[in-house]
Design a protein around this nucleic acid. Sequence first.
DNA 1: CTTTTTACTTGACACTGTGTCAATTGACAT
DNA 2: ATGTCAATTGACACAGTGTCAAGTAAAAAG
Lengths: 197, 197
Amino acid sequence: MSSENIETRIRILDATVRMLEEHRGRGVRMADIAKTAGISRQAVYLHFASRAELLEATTRYRDELLDLDRRLAPSRAATSGVERLALYIDFWGHYIPEIYGVGKALLLAQDTDEAAASAWKDRMLALRDGCRAAIEALHSDGTLAPEWTREKATDALWTMLLLPNWEHLTIDCGWSTQQYIRWTKTLAMRAFVEESA
Amino acid sequence: MSSENIETRIRILDATVRMLEEHRGRGVRMADIAKTAGISRQAVYLHFASRAELLEATTRYRDELLDLDRRLAPSRAATSGVERLALYIDFWGHYIPEIYGVGKALLLAQDTDEAAASAWKDRMLALRDGCRAAIEALHSDGTLAPEWTREKATDALWTMLLLPNWEHLTIDCGWSTQQYIRWTKTLAMRAFVEESA
DNA sequence: CTTTTTACTTGACACTGTGTCAATTGACAT
DNA sequence: ATGTCAATTGACACAGTGTCAAGTAAAAAG
């Protein structure tokens, strides 16, 4: 599956990203992707066994291109829990619009496709790790609001950052990325940080 | 379309509700619904023109059975904004698990089906009305936190109550309905009510 | 300069699920 | 007995995914 020409593989991945971002993850078929990549539909299957596998590979490819580690560096370098939480939300707020199309496609494919469902779950667990790290940092600082266990706070922050929330606020309600980030930060601070008044 | 036997129509709707709740809205086909209702697949089309129309009718049917007006009465009778907000979240928290399957099916059908998308949008606008009423009540009391416009606060509350948030917390994270309601209330109070400390 | 290999193409086809159509059955009403 | 109505049966069109076999064109290997 991987012995084939790497350039073609990348052309397919680029085409997939382009199509999914353009159409917000909806109604993009294998044939459309092939056409955009300038190859036959069947050639796509020489590189990716199924639509789900292509979507999964596309998310990984996207993350590479976006240089995830560099983007995460600021929040990882934070010197306090509050700062870490704020910087992680900053990271996420700028990251999510760039992966929206691919993520949405993966999300929608869950309906029929078990493999797509588990691929998405994987991505979400990575998000949870970031959330846990931020909550853990608050906890070590002693600034995690006392009503929370670390576990529950992680789940709650994780939920706040879910893709549909961003989608709804920006696409349906017309908020800007900046407004989304500000509101999410405010909410998280009031929810998780002690005496945030 | 409506001249047909009403009993059969109801049998179909009951079967649809049952199947969707049972399978959490995923992978339920017209043939499955027909089989559950004890009729032929084609007979379903004598009552509903398409899958989207059936899903739409099913949500309305579900709301009837659940006696939405009775359930909404407490929040409508609230004497303060804070009370109204709390009671509306109570209502929603108990309502959402009962419509989850149908809602999820409608949500997933958005991928391919334009009609399903607009049916879901309709349901969501009804939810927004409830949110606006609660925010409006806070505003008249003078207890809406000053950083919010009524419009933005409505959008934000609306987003908090989105189905995927409930889904994630209860189904993925294992929270109980009570925990979901408590957390949502706490969050909403801290977000929208002035000096909630 | 032929032969082999590699990457891809073309076209056909199986499968699933939605939605349509035509002919038929069985019950109930007039 | 006749007509009407609800539903049945079986066939089919259509879209999209995934598979398969045969062919092609160019690069690599002898």
